[in-house]
Design a protein around this nucleic acid. Structure first.
Lengths: 117, 117, 117, 117
DNA sequence: GTGGTCTAGACCACC
DNA sequence: GTGGTCTAGACCACA
């Protein structure tokens, strides 16, 4: 896996996990890869994965069964959406719209680009 | 000036300079404040400003006349727009649209929000 | 290490690193000394080494694995040669030949001098 | 006039003057432009030209008639050649040959390139 | 006055 | 442990 320059790797991994949950590729109560497995898979130090899991656990998105592994929480999807949707609309969207104006991109073009994908 | 926590100060300063160029508050061939002046003005160490100027110069946005100071490049605005627009459309927009879909936000709502501002 | 007076130290260090790569003393994918190690080794401030590494990274000669260290790029040698060769032939050689003419040195003497070494 | 990045402007100007003398575009006893004239001509601060003239005068390449101007010394050409030729052969040539080897440029190619100009 | 380089030392986030 | 950023302060060459 390739990582973005400025965002911490452990958060980038958390993001892709959230995406998998949102897209229902990973479902509630399902076991997720062990710290070591995922570490090998992504070519990343296990400590970094540990940090991702810590973070997701403290956000109630995954939970741990001691000696067994980590699992997706029952309400993971709702949790993610409620947190991220609010943050996205309140904080990020205004910035995005402002930048689009400065760069001379009309928001309506956005819909067009969207359909092309 | 107040700075965001996670993005380096020198880049945040670069951003505000780019914004000034885009909004034509600062025009081509115009001299910009000296390293020391801007340092005092922003309450920041001159070395940090130097780093900003280094970065902007390597991006062809400003240039240096030795012993005189830094100046806005003739094509600064075009340069900034082309770089940022490309990056925005190629890298950021896809991510944004993907996230909106995952979060269940219809892109057309975006236009509505835009009008409200 | 001893440094030339007029060229910045951080560039002189960059040069010696490039030389090590060209002579294959340092090979692709190999880790290079940490900023602090090399600083101690050369009797130079770590910041100065950091600047060297910054410069080499922006030239695609080395790359960084976060939290691990810097590594020689796969194509480092080719990159260095193509950049330097181009610069040498386009910029420096014409000047050298012109000066030799003005100073009355026949270019063929150069071969003779070369053999003496 | 455009200037090289790292070499002081006043020395670069001195170089071009020496070149004019070597190529006999400027001849002994001839008056050279005044500090102000040359400053305007090259788009450079008169102080910088002054420094060039100081330097050339202390090297016996030009001399000053008070209130009249600067003039090429009678032996300017020999002076320049004797100084530069020695320096070129002793100091610069070995470096050049070494770099050519590292870059894989055969000195004999040099003669070919020379003929092409 | 200008930029440019360098040191020393600190603090931080990340792996 | 790693790099990365920032400050403070110094010194220098150049215009």
């Amino acid at each position: 896996m390739e990582f973005n320059e400025h965002k911490p790797i452990y958060l980038q991994i958390a993001d892709t996990i959230c995406d998998k949950i949102l897209s229902e590729e990973w479902k509630p109560e399902e076991r997720i890869p062990s710290v070591r497995e995922l570490g090998v898979l992504l070519g990343v130090n296990p400590n970094t994965i540990m940090r991702t899991y810590d973070y997701l656990q403290s956000s109630d998105i995954i939970f741990n069964k001691r000696g067994v592994g980590y699992f997706i929480s029952k309400d993971a999807k709702t949790t993610i959406i409620s947190v991220q949707k609010h943050k996205f609309i309140q904080e990020e969207l205004p910035k995005i719209l402002k930048r689009m104006k400065l760069l001379g991109i009309n928001p309506s073009e956005l819909l067009k680009i969207d359909k092309d994908n």
